[in-house]
Nucleic acid binder design. Structure first.
Lengths: 119, 119
DNA sequence: TAATGTCAACGAAGTGTTTCGTAGATCTGC
DNA sequence: GCAGATCTACGAAACACTTCGTTGACATTA
């Protein structure tokens, strides 16, 4: 299932901080009204993007899928649609858009090394 | 200005093949009706995503911005929303999603080198 | 000139996304 | 128990996106 932009921001919070109530997520986002966040999370529950524990009054929501899995299928779409399938073009864009630090750059080189070994 | 998914596919065609008529773009896409493509391109003209030469009967459309520039600002959004600002997480997803060849991998290393030099 | 084909323009319908107001249930402190 | 606070649920409104039917202008050909 595909997440919308606002839904991605909620998933960010859940991945980073673990299962949360609507209020906690809402405060982490720091924007919009409470019921807006609630409505989004209800829709996400219907889509299967999150799971819910409703055994307490304040229901607790958690991500339904692993971060890597969702980001991976998101990038499949983006690669084709926006970058014509070129991972190099995407990397170029990421460098322009993210301006990574030297540390991050080193981590990225390591990823390339690891990927090469796996081939 | 931000492009929608269908608009990105049109921009792909224009970047790859240069300025085109609506019919040429429509046939390159190979999907949907002609008027759908036309309408999209009219909207894109309004948004400033494409430029138009209407001196001939079949108007000729070209991209308004460089590919790198548009993809870069797209990734600014995606990095924050979907990847929490981590370019390394994005690269990891891209490697999994695109499975680049050895040649592409070498090109990606070159991009990292060039970026580092510019810093 | 008349028939046929191609084109841009426009509007509208259908769907998806985001936001928020309101209602009703449940809890807490007095 | 009652008042106030907090919660879920629901529906509606506003906007964006995609698709396509129709119209009128223009060109081609017979």
């Amino acid at each position: 299932m595909k997440a919308t932009p606002a839904e991605w921001e909620i998933l960010q919070v859940l991945w980073k901080r673990g299962p949360q109530t609507v209020r906690e997520v809402h405060e982490a986002l720091g924007a919009g009204g409470y019921t807006t966040t609630l409505k989004l999370m209800q829709i996400m529950l219907g889509k299967g993007l999150v799971v819910r524990d409703d055994s307490t009054r304040a229901h607790v929501f958690g991500p339904a899928m692993a971060r890597e899995q969702m980001q991976g299928s998101f990038l499949e779409d983006v690669l084709r649609r926006v970058f014509g399938g070129s991972a190099a073009a995407l990397l170029q864009g990421a460098l322009n858009g993210a301006k990574p630090s030297a540390d991050e750059l080193a981590a990225m080189r390591r990823l390339l090394d690891e990927y090469e070994e796996r081939q």
